[in-house]
């Protein structure tokens, strides 16, 4: 009897183990696949020059610049608004129906397909507000897309902070605002950074929201203002894979682009992770 029980247990643990390694395996497979296929075109020239010969040679520099612009722009939109809303919801607002309503709405916001955001961005920012296809319109659209992530992580990070810190500060005569920016936010900061990391990953990879708001098919010229169009890595990847004049010849360029996109996201995650660990070393609980 006992033996059967143990065998069952062993079997289940084996299945769990295999599943876990399967996931890891698939991840490494994807990475390895991209490395093998994309490594060949990766060169200094590839990341510093514009595409040439119908995009079958040259580099992807304008798309890299474009994606960096959009990441920066959308973070400038989503981060302040998201963090401020998160602070409002957790620190100020009383837990009434308004707060519940806002929470439900932000959650709904995060389940809207990104192509719908693209359409909305085009209608509002490109046309109605007259920004045209531009970094501004694209950043605003992407910013809206990740707003719920930033609000959520901010709220969660604040909620995790015990009230004893807040009470300790208030009992010393600090105002609620002083308590928030001198005690609560420094503690929450590393976790809020997680929201930033997640959003950066999301923003750099999105194609649909930039399709109608900013992305250029081919534009070797670098942007000079926020009202310029740019190329962007995910859209460029899409173009290379589906709509060039010579798809076979452009294939290695597509893998190279995918590799660069992943490396950029990885790099940003590492930077954010470093900031996170540097700022959180004081908080030992």
């Amino acid at each position: 009897m006992k033996n059967l029980k143990q065998q069952k247990q062993a079997a289940v643990f084996w299945i769990l183990r295999i599943m876990t390694w399967l996931v890891v395996g698939i991840l490494f497979w994807i990475l390895g696949f991209l490395l093998v296929k994309g490594m060949g075109v990766l060169s200094w020239e590839f990341i510093t020059t514009a595409p040439k010969n119908e995009m079958t040679s040259g580099g992807i520099f304008p798309a890299i610049v474009g994606t960096l612009c959009l990441v920066t722009g959308s973070m400038l939109v989503a981060f302040p608004i998201g963090v401020m809303s998160g602070i409002y919801l957790n620190e100020y607002a009383r837990n009434g129906w308004t707060v519940r309503f806002i929470r439900i709405m932000t959650n709904n916001l995060s389940s809207i397909p990104s192509i719908v955001f693209g359409l909305f961005g085009m209608a509002l920012f490109v046309n109605t507000l007259g920004f045209g296809d531009s970094i501004l319109a694209g950043s605003l659209t992407l910013g809206l897309l990740v707003l719920p992530i930033v609000i959520r992580t901010t709220e969660e990070s604040l909620k995790a902070i015990p009230d004893t810190f807040r009470n300790g500060s208030r009992a010393l005569g600090a105002s609620q605002l002083q308590t928030i920016y001198k005690v609560v936010l420094p503690i929450a900061f590393p976790n809020i950074m997680t929201g930033l990391i997640l959003s950066i990953g999301r923003v750099s990879g999105e194609t649909a929201p930039i399709l109608f708001t900013v992305a250029a098919y081919f534009l070797p010229k670098l942007p000079t203002s926020i009202f310029d169009q740019v190329m962007a890595l995910p859209y460029h990847l899409y173009v290379l894979a589906t709509s060039g004049t010579d798809l076979e010849a452009a294939r290695p360029m597509a893998y190279g682009t995918a590799l660069v996109l992943i490396l950029i996201v990885l790099l940003m995650n590492i930077i954010a992770g470093i900031i996170r660990s540097l700022t959180s070393k004081d908080y030992v609980k």
Partner: peptide, 22 residues
Amino acid sequence: FQKPNPFPKSIYENVAYGLRVN
């Protein structure tokens, strides 16, 4: 308070806190 609740700051900054916020 019942449970010691120093801020996640230096010893010095903990004591200086009340002065600074005032």
